[in-house]
Nucleic acid binder design. Structure first.
Lengths: 166, 166, 166, 166
DNA sequence: TTTT
DNA sequence: TTTT
């Protein structure tokens, strides 16, 4: 049984449009890059900013919704858990990655639309914001129970459902 | 100003005794390795366990308390934020690390004492559990404002306060 | 759709054995009284304690587990949401109550067993602690979607499923 | 020492302009009414909405900021703890109230401005949103350590600092 | 009413 | 490496 609590709560903005892929079994996997910025005063009393970029992953139904409604610049609430992965890079080196596996999401009203999407076509408009979505409903049955494949620096191409290492 | 929320809540057990170091300015920095285990059913309906090992860092007064009261096996509640760091390894490669910067902690009653400590002297008994500590009080003034140096695979030896990269 | 986040995280001890009832439809509803104690320094610098007693409600499968495994004195992690209710007391007066509707629970290792139960028979031993349970799985299908009836000072006797006011 | 965790996280919208009062000692106390709405499917498969109205209280510096920047309609993230109070109403009856004592707040970008304020003059424009504020800094020293007086149905007029019942 |  |  589960022992321990591993919970993450984020509110931040997307640095790019989401990227959605599908497993061979048809399950959506959407990844976003989410910025949270904090401030502290350094020892000279100056305001110092620091931004963390979180790699957030949405599976299944939540992945479809995230891919459809979120855009670069969108403001979003995410709840999930931290997942650490280790893999061998293409250079043969061991690498580590950290992902936030989302199991709840809610769009907030800031900068929806976003636009000017990053690399790909992007630029589909976001729909109505301020809705909450979770991955816990019965039925489709992929929620945290069906979490993350290999992580960011790692490629996630061409993988079958069976490749999901968990 | 701050934009966004970056909050982590963990309940887990220490895999080893804490490691405490001090900056040249005398500030304590304590690191622990904290396990949280979750379960899911795989597609064959079998229970699959997965453990995440979180690297948690406590600064200042909180670092002193963590170093003094926590032990291998201790059960603890931690609240903090995620911090991602990038550094150059001794092999000249860019590496990444992820730390949880604690700003609150509370010992829970499970397996206090721990004992059988790892490598170093260790084995001092834990004191009374079930107390909550935070890093927000005025005075000493190191709290999240004085967060993490380079991360785990990275060495944290011999650094002066000025070396703290934030 | 949902707008907003309403999330509560509690770690505390039960003041009494749980009370479990069943709807006419057979759904379990378990209530516990959970203490959390905080400290502050008053203006004279003295430590002042204050205990909050949370009325936590578990529905469905989670209600069965809570009723079976928790006991007076048990230490438990609860995650849920706040629910405010208004009802007319037997004296004809409008009254208010506040409940925490649990959707996740995890027993912690403190004082399991409890024993010496309050008023009723009680005194069944708690089972193995340190397991996490949630109400989100498909199937039975009562989770937050099937939350709380009238609240504490209000009686919760003899109600049919149809009486659940939501 | 503290035993237990009592943590609340809310994202919602203000139903009215904030109300700010000052203790005789000059400490600001600001109250807001914050809505969070959730949905569930009832047994007929229809979407059922339910809104909780949280009474959130900000003290000290945080109270000043909340009073100055929040407005009816503002979207806000609040972190704090639950506080239950019992008092004797003007009708001589015992009454109960529940407040969320905020210790962190961050304005979100939705509907700032708000306008059309409720009862009082209101209608000052909100300032720049998306900033995070906490009550933990040293100095003034009112944070959760200086929480809530009597609660909503209860009057909070004319009270001196010494009247604060904690 | 719990717990430390 | 912990814990159940």
């Amino acid at each position: 049984m589960a022992r321990g609590i591993n919970k993450v709560i984020l509110v931040g903005n997307l640095g790019n449009d989401p990227e959605t892929r599908y497993t061979q079994g048809g399950m959506a996997i959407t990844r976003i890059s989410l910025a949270t910025t904090s401030v502290r005063k350094d020892k000279d009393g100056n305001q110092q900013e620091r931004t963390e970029w979180h790699r957030v992953v949405f599976f299944g139904k939540l992945g479809e919704i995230a891919g459809e409604y979120l855009r670069k610049g969108s403001s979003v609430y995410v709840e999930g858990s931290i997942r650490y992965d280790k893999y061998t890079g293409q250079d043969g080196q061991e690498k580590y990655s950290t992902d936030i596996i989302a199991d709840e999401m809610q769009m907030l009203g800031g900068r929806e639309g976003g636009g000017g999407g990053g690399m790909g076509g992007g630029d589909r408009p976001a729909r109505t914001p301020r809705q909450e979505y979770g991955n816990q409903g019965g039925g489709g049955g992929q929620r945290r129970q069906a979490p993350a494949p290999a992580s960011q620096p790692a490629p996630m191409d061409d993988f079958a459902d069976d490749d999901i290492p968990f």
